[in-house]
């Protein structure tokens, strides 16, 4: 997957959690949590969707890597390089 694909994947998953999520003004360098009003239960859904779709096991210690859209892409890029 390219970085762009991963970005699309993450946004797709978030859209699935909240179909009213507004990505127009999303700053990829700022926390998703604040911008999209996601809570820890929503983050767990992102992790679970990644596992379901791409068999990725993300340990809890790595959850901070999912904080911003950019950090998600940085973290997932090596894991999804063959996906």
């Amino acid at each position: 997957m390219t970085r762009e694909d991963i970005k699309t994947l993450i946004l797709e998953i978030i859209q699935d959690i909240d179909d009213e999520a507004d990505f127009d003004n999303l700053d990829p360098g700022k926390p998703l949590r604040d911008q999209l009003d996601l809570d820890s239960m929503d983050f767990l859904d992102i992790v679970m969707e990644l596992r379901k779709r791409h068999q990725l096991q993300i340990p809890e210690a790595d959850y901070p890597h999912l904080a911003t859209l950019n950090s998600c892409v940085d973290y997932l890029e090596p894991l999804l390089k063959d996906a």
Binding site: I17, D18, D37, D39, M41, D42, D45
Partner: peptide, 12 residues
């Protein structure tokens, strides 16, 4: 009110 228990439950 996205953070309210009712809406969190429905999302989950």
């Amino acid at each position: 009110d996205r953070r309210a228990p009712l809406n969190r439950l429905l999302r989950q």
